[in-house]
């Protein structure tokens, strides 16, 4: 049985690296990533599970790191935006105007990345089902929608 009574040393597997942190059991994964590991790509937009700016991948699935305790995910693979580079979806976001202020972007990128890894041929309904988990206030979602479609094309030609 795992038991943490107070501040404890926990080991996380982040972007392929084992990282040791000292955290409270009540610390959310979002706070630990940002404040203990310097991975500030995950953003606090609401800390209430509503906006998706803090989205990271746990074993490849998007989850909201503000709704996750760091102690819960000790044995799982965590992927943050810092763990993505030169992916099709990142390129597409640049080419198709998937962002403006950039604050929601990490969350949108990780969610979209997971979507396209899971369902490369996702139809509009599936794209909507996944992406309605995140909020963007700048783009009106047009650029994000175009980015997903463009990334799908790129993935086909991998």
């Amino acid at each position: 049985m795992i038991a943490y009574k107070d501040y404890a040393s926990i080991e996380l597997l982040v972007n392929g690296e084992k990282r040791k942190v000292f955290a409270r059991p009540a610390d959310t994964l979002l706070r630990v990533l940002r404040e203990k590991l310097g991975l500030t790509g995950a953003k606090p937009g609401c800390e209430n599970g509503d906006c998706g700016a803090c989205t990271v991948l746990i074993d490849g699935k998007p989850i909201k790191s503000c709704l996750t305790l760091a102690v819960e995910v000790g044995n799982k693979e965590i992927t943050t935006i810092e763990g993505l580079s030169n992916t099709e979806i990142q390129e597409a976001f640049i080419e198709e105007g998937g962002f403006q202020c950039g604050y929601c972007t990490s969350g949108f990128l990780l969610n979209s990345y997971a979507l396209l890894e899971t369902h490369p041929d996702a139809d509009d309904k599936t794209i909507k089902e996944w992406l309605e988990s995140n909020l963007c206030r700048c783009t009106g979602y047009e650029g994000i929608e175009k980015s997903i479609k463009a990334a799908q094309e790129k993935i086909k030609n991998r």
Partner: peptide, 16 residues
């Protein structure tokens, strides 16, 4: 940020 502390337990059997 959760302002207060709590303990965390993750048992693996019902008895636990």
């Amino acid at each position: 940020m959760i302002p207060f502390d709590f303990q965390y337990y993750r048992p693996t059997t019902i008895q636990e």
